[in-house]
Every structure is written in structure tokens, then in C-alpha cells.
Design a binder for these strands. Structure first.
Lengths: 193, 193
DNA sequence: ATGTAAGTAGAACGAGTGGTCTACTTCCTG
DNA sequence: CAGGAAGTAGACCACTCGTTCTACTTACAT
């Protein structure tokens, strides 16, 4: 069997590995999930895994890459819906809320990963940092377009509120946190209460 | 050597174990630290460890108990300084900020622990839940005493903001998060900006 | 037709995991 | 003074960890 490739060009085995790992890492934690579990769930052999990834940590980074790509995709799709900055901010806040409510009920993948990787210069922490920088920067650009008087500060507040929403949604239940999140996010974004 | 007890009544070996474990668990993560490391750092033997704790997870709970006790102690000490509710709120917000800046630079012990313990009915997660309930309840009582119009909602907002401060302080740097935290916390508490 | 890259299958590695056990010592308490 | 709880020291358990390796197969590209 030569390189069985998927439509996107990457190997199907690699995709199965990343998909299985993403699911397990998010649901159970990273150190708690062994390579055996992952290859078992992916229906792939050990050798295949090590053919595609130098080691487990690279798979962790691939998992975070997927999460990162998902959010970027959501932002892009929102950008195709409307060009009005205020409306876009509304969509983003709604989208974030919906994401916590349905997809990310076990907290933020990046925050959770960082909890398990204390060393700031590890590949995992670098990926976390890059994701957060992108997120903050994107919000700031959005707020700038919406004419926010201090987009840098407002973006920081939105990041703050979003972190809290993911943590609180996981530990306290989303229904308990939702009103506070929506209220605080709209206020930070400069939207009508 | 019989029960060498400390002033508080508990064995000195037990206290050394909890102290070493607290330090290691917080700095490096829980699953990442083995029993060997802990007993080595505590200068205590394996048998002594298992004499005091049924297993590793009980040590994790003891670690969270210490963190819980520390914060409760800080609240009590603040309560002895002043009786004025507004002034007390000021002290609490200041104290939380100071705590993130100096002591908890690796995030929130409870949030980090929860990231590693997905099962909601595990002892660790129960301890996390109890701590959060106490924290929210205490804030609500404080806000009620301060005459806040909706203390339950305000307490929820303060919890939210505090979670975000600990996460952001760890991942983005405290100096970057501090202004947003203080601003949001004071607003939620109903204090003058 | 054949070479090569990607796959399967599975044994083996050393290190580390949490946890148990035995043998001996120390020192407080009844 | 005797008993027992708490301590040290260290061997040992079965298992899991991430990783490496050999041997064989499959299928696409030249």
C-alpha cells in the first residue's frame, strides 16, 4: 500500500492519528493518554505512527494545530457573512458562546495543554502562545475596524472574558456562566447591552 | 522514632510530603510527577508515604486542601483588617492581584488540576468544585454586605474575572493582564473605577 | 516489471509508574 | 518496662510509558 492520500494531500493514516489523538487528548488530558491508546483508536500500527511523527509531542502539536485551524476557519466563515464590523463582532461573540456550549465542554485545549507543559519554550507552549497572539491580534483588528477607541485594551478584555468562559463552562456549567460572558463580552466590544 | 508531631498536631513527615508534593504538582503538573520524585524531595521513604496516604491521589487532594486553606486564610486576615464591606472588597481584589503576581505564576492550581482530571466525580474534581463553591459564596456574602444590587451575578463575574486573571497571568504575563483584571474586578464589585 | 515509500504485525527496549512487602530502629505512651 | 506506632532502608511487583527494531506486504510511479 503506497501513500494512500486524502483529498487534502496528506496521508489518511496521519489524519486518523491526529483525529484520534485530538479526541483523546482533549477528553482525557495529554499525559494521561498513551501512544498505545492513540494508535489503537486510530486503527494504525506503531511503526506507522513513528513514520509520520518523530514522537508523541509532535502529535500534541498537530492536535493544537487542528484546534487553531478550526477557530481560524470559524473566523473566516464569519467574515464571509458580513462586512459590517459591529455585526461581525456580534457574530464572533455568538460563535464563541456556541463553541463553548457545544464543542468545548472540557475547557480550552490550549489552556489545558499549557497546564501540562510548564516549560515556556517547549513546542507545545510555543504553539499555545502563537494561537493566543493570533487570537488577540485578530480581535484587535476587528475592534479597530469597528472604531473602538482603545482596541488593544478591548481585545485584551475579550481574551480575558473568553478564557474565563471556557474555564467556567467546564467547571461550573455553561448555563451558569453564559449570561456573565455575553454581558462582559458585549461591553468589552463596545456593543449595546 | 515515634510520631514526631508538629505544633499543629500532624506528623512532620506528612507535612514534608504535602509540602514537597504541593511544590512539584504546581510547578510541573500532577501526572508528570511520580511518587519517587516526591518522597525524594521530602526526604522520606516510600513506606512512610504509604503509611500516611492510601495512594497518590490522596496526596493530590491534600495539596488542593492546602491551596484552599491558604486562600481562606487570606480572606480571614483581610476580614480582621477592616469591617467596612467596600474597603474589604478593595482589599480582596488587591490581594487576588498580589497573589497572581507573586505566588501563582503557573496558573490556578484548581484549574490546572481539573485539566488533568476529566472525571467530574473524582475526588480531585470534587475538591475543585467545593473550593469554587466556597469562593463564589464568600464573594456573594461580601457583595451582599456591601449592598450590591445583585450579589449573585456580581459574584459570578468576579469568579470569572479571577479565573481569567490566573490563566492570563500564566500564559500572557501578569503585567499584560493586570490592568484589565483590576478594571473588570472593580467594576463587577461595584467600586469606583 | 521493478523499486520505493507506506503500510501491517509484533517483539523488544530501558526507564519509570504506583504500590506492596520484609526487616530493622527509634522513641513516646500506658 | 513493655508494647506499639512511626520511622528508615531497600528489594520487589506487575504494568505502562515512549521508542526502536525486524520482517513482511501492498500499491503506486517510473
Amino acid at each position: 500500500m503506497a501513500t494512500r492520500t486524502t483529498s487534502a494531500g496528506t496521508s489518511v493514516a496521519r489524519e486518523k492519528l491526529v483525529a484520534a489523538a485530538s479526541d483523546l487528548f482533549y477528553r482525557e488530558g495529554i499525559h494521561a493518554v498513551g501512544v498505545d491508546r492513540i494508535i489503537g483508536e486510530a486503527g494504525v500500527t506503531r511503526a506507522t505512527f513513528y513514520r509520520h511523527f518523530p514522537g508523541k509531542e509532535d502529535l500534541v502539536e498537530a492536535y493544537l494545530d487542528v484546534e487553531d485551524a478550526n477557530i481560524r476557519g470559524a473566523f473566516e466563515r464569519a467574515g464571509e457573512v458580513t462586512d459590517d464590523p459591529d455585526q461581525l463582532l456580534e457574530l464572533v461573540i455568538e460563535g464563541l458562546a456556541d463553541d463553548v456550549a457545544r464543542l468545548h465542554t472540557r475547557g480550552c485545549p490550549f489552556i489545558n495543554a499549557a497546564a501540562e507543559y510548564p516549560e515556556a519554550d517547549s513546542g507545545v507552549r510555543v504553539a499555545v502562545g502563537e494561537h493566543r497572539d493570533w487570537f488577540r491580534g485578530t480581535l484587535e483588528a476587528l475592534l479597530t475596524a469597528a472604531g473602538n477607541p482603545d482596541p488593544a485594551i478591548a481585545a485584551g478584555q475579550l481574551v480575558l472574558v473568553r478564557d474565563a468562559a471556557m474555564v467556567g463552562g467546564y467547571l461550573d456549567g455553561w448555563e451558569r456562566v453564559r449570561p456573565a460572558f455575553v454581558d462582559a463580552a458585549r461591553r468589552a466590544a463596545g456593543l449595546a447591552a
